[in-house]
Design a protein around this nucleic acid. Sequence first.
DNA 1: GGCTTTGTTGACCGACTGGACCACAATGGG
DNA 2: CCCATTGTGGTCCAGTCGGTCAACAAAGCC
Lengths: 207, 207
Amino acid sequence: MGRKRGFDETTVLDVVRDRFWTTGFDGTSTYDLMDATGLGKGSIYKAFGNKHDLYVRVFSDYCQGLVAQAREELRDGPHAVLTSPMARLERYVVSLADAFATESPRRGCFLTKVTADRAGEDDMVAATARRAFEDLAGALASALRDAQDAGEVAEHADATALGYLLLSVIRGIDNMAKAGVDATTLRQTARSALELIPRADAPNVRR
Amino acid sequence: MGRKRGFDETTVLDVVRDRFWTTGFDGTSTYDLMDATGLGKGSIYKAFGNKHDLYVRVFSDYCQGLVAQAREELRDGPHAVLTSPMARLERYVVSLADAFATESPRRGCFLTKVTADRAGEDDMVAATARRAFEDLAGALASALRDAQDAGEVAEHADATALGYLLLSVIRGIDNMAKAGVDATTLRQTARSALELIPRADAPNVRR
DNA sequence: GGCTTTGTTGACCGACTGGACCACAATGGG
DNA sequence: CCCATTGTGGTCCAGTCGGTCAACAAAGCC
């Protein structure tokens, strides 16, 4: 019972996330949120609590999506888009770098932004970000292990460490992209990271 | 002629930078700045212009210092702290990662913070950050070329590309550190990046 | 000791802030 | 057709925002 909602929650949350993304937590007022969503102030507070709750909510949702997407694009198995694990890994990393370098305005990744913006002052945000980083590094490490199993990457390589390494490179490219560093340079940086991954001398049979 | 200043400009700018560092541009009010510096509002505005001017000023100063420090710690020549170029490079990268990982609260690098915070909305900031990134990557590349000359790094390696790669790894570690990722993991990430740099098969004579 | 010049202070301004709250609108069960 | 319940838009509030200003303080020049 009660009155039905006149807005689509997902749409509103997307719009709110984009606002926080471009102007940050402190730089986004409740009036900005009203303008962006078309909702009255009361509706927003009723539906999502206060500004901070809303911020944590959209950030948390974003991280879930980000991790899910990484797992999807990197995963091995029958539904994999590309058959080679290494090809998937390269595609994932390079396409991210490419996106950061070419989008306009360069807003980068919301996770990077939020972490720099609020992780130092907000334990809730820091915990969510940390979890996302660990999951992303895990997904990358998993892809690297797939590549090892396929005989593309050297067995002696530490997949976990390389996962964090690739993740940090992506984060760094994101940050440099925001400053306007040349797109070619950023793409090259991503490719360099991939090239340095130790390759197996002779390809194994795919088990 | 006229009255002398009652404060030390450098000290005040340091305090202001620290405030912006921890709470960001929008999160730092003019009253916060008054509290931190002990100056009246009028004095601040008289001496440094408006809030944005002050922000750009401390950021610009910080970047200059950051680049100078990198060049100092990485430089080859008679005044070098360590004789081996590669040892200097390793020391520089690892000590940075270590600082990001162990400091409390984890505030990371001001350059990373400012870039994420305002580079997207502020061309002045973006230009300064971009210049700093290019200079830092250049200093790293220069150190890598020194290592090549010393026979520590393979000749075929692209020093410029590796410079940007190391820089992006540092930036990424900074970002992950803010989220509270395990210190050991972050140190390991820095070491992994250094280990992947292609070494020369046989050391050359130092020319 | 004026006088100009620069530094300092705190009051003051209008605009804006996050959040509480209220009157009203829609909804569906009884 | 009520009426409890939930959604909605907007007003209101106390406090804060960035920035200006005028009165006052120290300094060197004549």
